[in-house]
């Protein structure tokens, strides 16, 4: 029934707004129009046998939101840090929470300032990155949320292999 996507903004050809956040020592950004909410704290319910990178479930305004650790695929150690902020983004009809260290700012970045090379981070993270923007004081890695969710979630090996019997 729902044919029109009410969130879809008119595409601006030159500049897009991004929400920048800190993850460890690096700075990342996602398109601002996909951001639903920035949430401090919140109670996570763990999901046994969930794919790696899925930290748990969060309840937000009647929805069940899977919370994801973006550090897993971005080559950042997912050690316990001061992270307790959830950046909730919408992808089509689903919402996802990204566990981040700190919300920084909303920045407007012109397309021609985005460098599509993504070699500055580890190999595996390339598929989740849309490009790099060199801000005066730091590099901002632009994430493609859709690709990031897909790349983050590498399903665990099929169940039977894990349940393999422990014997010769």
């Amino acid at each position: 029934m729902n044919v029109t996507d009410r969130r879809a903004p008119a595409p601006t050809p030159v500049a897009h707004r991004y929400c920048a956040f800190r993850l460890g020592d690096a700075c990342f950004a996602v398109p601002a129009d996909g951001v639903v909410e920035v949430l401090r704290g919140g109670r996570l319910t763990t999901v046994p046998l969930a794919p790696e990178g899925v930290l748990g479930l969060l309840h937000l305004r009647g929805r069940i939101v899977p919370v994801i650790d973006p550090g897993v695929r971005l080559g950042l150690a997912s050690g316990a840090r001061d992270r307790a902020t959830h950046l909730v983004i919408a992808l089509q009809d689903d919402w996802y929470g990204l566990l981040i260290d700190e919300m920084l700012d909303v920045v407007e970045i012109s397309e021609d300032h985005i460098d599509p090379s993504t070699s500055s981070l580890s190999e595996g993270s390339g598929e989740a990155l849309a490009g790099v923007f060199a801000a005066p004081d730091r590099l901002v890695h632009l994430l493609d949320p859709q690709r990031m969710i897909h790349s983050l979630v590498r399903p665990r090996p099929p169940f039977s292999e894990r349940q393999g019997v422990h014997h010769g």
Binding site: R43, G62, I64, P66, D94, P155
Partner: peptide, 26 residues
């Protein structure tokens, strides 16, 4: 409540619910 394709694909959980105490339960 639906848990999204990400977790539904596991085949272990058919959804989730929020209990009276606000906790999410699979």
């Amino acid at each position: 409540k639906p848990i999204g394709a990400l977790l539904a694909g596991l085949g272990l959980y058919s959804g989730a619910t929020v209990l009276g105490d606000g906790g999410v339960v699979l």
